[in-house]
Design a binder for these strands. Structure first.
Lengths: 228, 228
DNA sequence: CGTACCTTTGATAAGACTCAAGACTGGTGG
DNA sequence: CCACCAGTCTTGAGTCTTATCAAAGGTACG
């Protein structure tokens, strides 16, 4: 009926409304966690779904091997959504934070009477697909700085919906986490940060905060073959 | 109700039933196309959705630039599903084939009375996410042969649901298409094929058909750091 | 204040890309 | 049936970038 509810036009980042949050807190329980906490492990039964309220987390292929990071999760994201009966990925908190733990059965019941919530899930799934394709595109870039540039724009777009100001990129994750996400060594990440700063394209305020100074030249790094 | 219809456990490859095909042919029209045909272009309005019946196609970021291939489409796959109002990718036929062209409005009407069809779409979306994450994982492998090995297993899993026999990998796309998908140069693809064959891991029957001879050694190429 | 971890910096070497040329395939027309 | 031709594919040599190994510098935490 309304384009807002079409399952076929699902892209568009958004957050849960206060009403939806209230419903989720009714059917689930809020869980607070510390940085470094294992939120779930690969192979766990998918009886509950986590909905991130605050903080950041990383999704890994294995609990032990944190070298390969599949995705980052921020406020409004779900865990275990697209994963069959048992979870195929592990997740670990990158910062302190909080999440709703929602029984799958209760959530599906809620879907019957709350179509908007259901469509929110489908759209979230679409966003995840979009993010995965963006990461795949990032990974096809051979230049280390092209990958960093695309990573910055990805993080920026994620933070924009949470009220982050454009041009200010907050990096809650470690250099090693960034490296695991963009498929490079931590050393190469560090070097690229330094070069971008030395060229005046970004400013490293501190290890967790980067400002974009010259967006045109940042974009030129990944359009074409790597604008030098 | 039935686990088969859960939107929260959506993974699992499957094809449309004959009944569903009949419904789709009612609400849409079948289109036959030749190899090389432009199926849709980036920016086109998403008034209709294509559902692949036969053949193979490639999805590209731009109609002009076919170097970067986002995904391949085979029988049972949809085009333009996860893309907002206007299409964000282009698609081109890799082989001769056929597809249903379905008006979005008619499809959404059908969803109201056919929940199974709707769930089929959600699961397809999940599969696309899974494939995109698989490709991202593939692209994090630095070794050319590791990427080839993962590509073979991906194609094999896609063909298994269409009745392809395991160990026989049919490659309808060109070497350049493979290169564009796995983020390497066509030369590197060619070299890797040769090396895999010379080691007795696969057999190149001809340019379009590869047999897997030693699955263990093929898998060893991407588990760990290379298994050279 | 000390310690452990994260981050940065520095040399080396392996690997893929690029450019260039030769071989093959499939389709076309005589 | 055969010869031709354009496109695809394969092979080869050189260059560049990043991973790797190693160690010093910086931070956060107890």
């Amino acid at each position: 009926m309304t384009s807002n509810r079409s399952a076929l036009r699902p892209i568009g980042r958004e957050l849960l409304t206060d009403q939806q949050k209230a419903k989720l807190s009714d059917i689930g329980r809020i869980v607070r966690f510390k940085k470094g906490t294992q939120l779930h492990r690969k192979g766990d039964p998918a009886n509950t779904i986590l909905c991130m309220v605050d903080g950041a987390a990383k999704v890994c292929r294995n609990a032990e091997d944190e070298e390969h990071i599949v995705a980052f999760r921020f406020a409004g994201d779900f865990f275990g959504l697209a994963e069959a009966g048992s979870l195929v990925y592990s997740a670990m908190a990158v910062t302190d934070g909080a999440a709703y733990r929602l029984p799958v059965s209760a959530l599906e019941s809620q879907f019957l009477t709350d179509a908007d919530l259901k469509f929110y899930f489908v759209r979230k799934l679409s966003q995840e697909l979009y993010d995965a394709q963006h990461r795949a595109f990032l990974l096809t870039r051979r230049s280390a700085m092209a990958r960093i540039a695309l990573f910055f724009e990805f993080i920026e777009s994620r933070q924009a919906i949470s009220g982050g100001s454009l041009g200010q990129i907050h990096l809650p994750m470690s250099r090693a986490d960034i490296a695991g996400y963009i498929g490079m060594s931590p050393e190469a990440v560090s070097r690229s940060f330094r070069i971008l700063a030395s060229r005046g394209i970004v400013q490293s305020v501190n290890r967790r905060l980067v400002k974009i100074l010259d967006r045109d030249r940042l974009g030129a790094l990944y359009s074409r073959q790597g604008g030098g």
